[in-house]
Structures are given as structure tokens and as C-alpha cells.
């Protein structure tokens, strides 16, 4: 468990409905569809999909979750990881080129900047899903199960955990991902998260993506 591993991915297929959801569109007008098509074409080849990860033993004591590389009192993470014996900690990014493209269009077409940003959001989520599925498959082969991934900033898990995560994953060197003083990641379309590994399937938790989050007024909240 002492090594940071790397994975690079072929691009997962684009989910147009997800892109539109991130752009705040329920029923696209023909012009919006055209904007999406143009933006998708422009974004082709812009992304580089990279993930680095490392597995750590995890233990629980008096409401404290000991992740080996850091301890946290987050109740939401505690709930999320309960029953886990280890966690797969990962960082994923789709690269900085999209940030440049968005910057450029901010100057000449905010509509396109918005759409490109939505594509970026969909891409990084797809990358995380692809990685997550692989880990779940790997663990399943060993008779183990995984919990839904959980990131700093979700529920009461503090963003400050990012500092510890960056220290153990060596993100700048491994995948070119950096953290600034406000704990914002650059490239912006990047994710760090924890996946719990459990010996038994927790059928009682419905793995709905937004069920663990308390921000009920979120514009992007999934209700199904």
C-alpha cells in the first residue's frame, strides 16, 4: 500500500443529457442543441484523462475515522465508510486545456464558455465513474464490495483534507494536478475522492448519488 498507482483512460462516451443538465438546460432549443454540437466538436481531443490512486487501511474509533494518512471527525464520511477495512484514495483530472478554452471563450462567447464548462463537468464525472467501476470490479473479484465515492467538501467532510490528500498522492507529479491556497484545484475539472472497501455488501444504503448530501436547494440535485 506504499505506492501511488497511475491509470490513464480512453475517453468514456459523452452523455449529452448530463452535459445539458450541467448547463442548466431541461428542454434544449434547436439553437442550444447546435451550441452543444459545436462545443463538443471543439472540445474533441482537448481532454487527457488521468487518475492516480493509493489504498490505505481505515479504522474507526469514538466517532473518529482514521484513514492512515489523516484522521477526521466527519460524521458523513463515517457513515459513508462504515464497515470498510480500507479506502482507495484517488485524484482524477481531465487536464488544463479545457480551462484555457473556457478562458478564451469567456472573452468572446460566454454561452460557449458555459457549454464547454458543462462538457468538462460531464467528462470528469465520467472519468470518475469509469475509475470507480474498475475498482469495484477489481474488489469484487476478491470477494469485496465498495461504497459510493465521497469527496472533501461533501457533507461535513472539510475541504482542508485536500492538503493531506495531496501530500500522499503526489498529485502534481503524478497527474499534473495542483492545489492552491484556497484549496481550489487546478486544472479545475478535477476530483479527489475516497472509495471504501468493505467485506460485506451494504444493501441497506441506497447508492443514490445525491442522497448523502445535505444541500437540499442544490440546482443540480438528482431526485431519482
Amino acid at each position: 500500500m506504499n505506492t501511488v498507482f497511475l491509470k490513464s483512460f480512453a475517453p468514456p462516451p459523452v452523455d449529452r443529457l448530463e452535459v445539458l443538465r450541467y448547463a442548466g438546460v431541461k428542454e434544449p432549443s434547436p439553437e442550444t442543441e447546435a451550441l452543444l454540437d459545436d462545443s463538443l466538436q471543439e472540445a474533441e481531443g482537448v481532454f487527457s484523462y488521468a487518475v492516480c490512486y493509493r489504498e490505505f487501511p481505515v479504522s474507526f474509533c469514538d466517532g473518529v475515522c482514521d484513514l492512515s494518512f489523516a484522521k477526521t471527525e466527519s460524521k458523513d464520511l463515517f457513515k459513508n465508510l462504515s464497515g470498510s477495512t480500507s479506502v482507495v484514495l484517488f485524484a482524477a483530472t481531465v487536464g488544463i486545456t479545457l480551462d484555457r478554452l473556457v478562458s478564451r471563450y469567456s472573452k468572446i462567447s460566454p454561452a460557449r464558455a458555459l457549454m464547454l464548462n458543462a462538457i468538462g463537468a460531464e467528462r470528469i464525472e465520467s472519468l470518475c465513474n469509469a475509475f470507480n467501476q474498475e475498482i469495484t470490479k477489481e474488489k469484487k473479484a476478491l470477494g469485496l464490495f465498495t461504497t459510493p465515492r465521497f469527496s472533501p467538501g461533501y457533507g461535513d467532510l472539510p475541504l482542508a483534507l485536500q492538503k493531506d490528500i495531496f501530500a500522499v498522492l503526489d498529485c502534481p507529479r503524478k497527474i499534473g494536478l495542483t492545489l492552491n491556497e484556497s484549496l481550489i484545484m487546478s486544472p479545475t475539472k478535477s476530483v479527489t475522492a475516497l472509495i471504501g472497501v468493505t467485506p460485506c455488501d451494504r444493501k441497506n444504503t441506497k447508492d443514490r448519488p445525491c442522497s448523502g448530501c445535505s444541500k437540499a436547494d442544490c440546482a443540480f440535485r438528482r431526485t431519482i
Binding site: A23, S29, E31, T32, S109
Partner: peptide
């Protein structure tokens, strides 16, 4: 009124 979505609003604004 949530009949027009953000990208369309922006395209019109542009």
C-alpha cells in the same frame, strides 16, 4: 419563468 435556459439566455445576450 424557467421557459428559457441559461445557454439560450446567453446566446441572446451575445
Amino acid at each position: 419563468e424557467k421557459k428559457v435556459y441559461l445557454p439560450q439566455l446567453l446566446m441572446s445576450a451575445e
